[in-house]
């Protein structure tokens, strides 16, 4: 028998980690962030480097790979990695303060710089990394549905989902408008003032069109019963992968162990 359309719009995931219920994923993200901060307080070597953050970061690629989304996550992490790298380099080589550790030519590495370089860049990589995992394994539709299920007002959920679509639409439209303006002779290359001037004819019609469109959109929504009070039906529903309890328990256990370890280090 042919599948119903309602059946066809559902999201089925075979991977148990990627298919975790969004709220469980969020729990993992929060606990991972807590662990990152706890581990960041453990210092090693003479200059107190937060070295534990480096092996801890290995959790991210492992998690992404076992969720079957390594490629996507690496791609998304590139932007973050670039920022982390710049921070690492700038802080290591440029920030003065404390003892000078190494010196070659005009470059020197100071104690304070190296310390913040390591903790800052890996802190960013860790926290950003876990969010990347969350967002790369969860579709926007699932996030929106989860928000609504967690008691968010339907209007707020609408704004969230519609924002994601609006970004796509306006990006498309801006390309069309920019090409049209280029065809009409608006310069997009040259010195900075020329380029800055090109900014206006590209953006003004875009915003204006969107505003006028919103007016009609309000009436469309009204005509579709947007503001009717009462229970709404949801054709799209979130699914559980079955590994929710195990995943949550594992995340809580690891967090407890790490916190216990940290306290033990203080006491001992």
């Amino acid at each position: 028998m042919e599948k119903t359309y309602t059946e066809r719009i559902q999201i089925h995931k075979t991977n148990k980690l990627a298919g975790l219920y969004p709220s469980v994923k969020l729990l993992v993200v929060v606990l991972y962030t807590v662990c990152t901060f706890v581990l960041g307080t453990v210092h090693f070597t003479r200059v107190d480097l937060s070295l534990l953050l480096i092996p801890w970061f290995l959790v991210i690629p492992i998690l992404c790979a076992s969720s079957g989304a390594l490629g996507k996550c690496v791609k998304a992490l590139k932007a973050v990695a670039l920022i982390a790298l710049i921070i690492l380099l700038v802080q290591t080589f440029l920030v003065p303060g404390g003892e000078v550790l190494v010196r070659f030519g005009f470059l020197r590495i100071c104690e304070k710089g190296l310390k913040t370089a390591v903790s800052l860049s890996f802190m960013i990589m860790n926290i950003a990394g876990i969010f990347v995992w969350l967002f790369q394994t969860t579709e926007n539709k699932e996030i929106a549905r989860a928000l609504e299920e967690s008691g968010m007002n339907y209007k707020a959920a609408y704004v969230f989902t519609s924002t994601l679509q609006m970004i796509d639409i306006l990006s498309e439209n801006s390309k069309t408008i920019m090409n049209a303006q280029k065809a009409r002779g608006v310069e997009t290359e040259g010195n900075m003032i020329v380029r800055a001037k090109a900014f206006f004819p590209s953006l003004v019609p875009l915003i204006l069109g969107a505003v006028i469109g919103s007016e009609e959109r309000v009436l469309t929504l009204e005509a579709r019963g947007f503001s009717i009070q009462g229970e709404k039906t949801h054709l799209f529903n979130l699914e559980k992968s079955g590994a929710e309890k195990t995943a949550a328990a594992a995340a809580v256990m690891i967090t407890i162990l790490i916190i216990a370890g940290r306290i033990a280090l203080w006491v001992l």
Binding site: T163, R195, L206, V218
Partner: peptide
């Protein structure tokens, strides 16, 4: 937060996004 204002929020966010993109395409500082 009238209906119209609710619909202006997505437009605002998208304009932020497109503006930023456009600025980097045009290599503005």
């Amino acid at each position: 937060f009238s209906m119209l204002a609710l619909l202006i929020i997505p437009v605002g966010v998208a304009v932020n996004f497109v503006g930023g993109q456009l600025a980097s395409i045009l290599k503005l500082p």
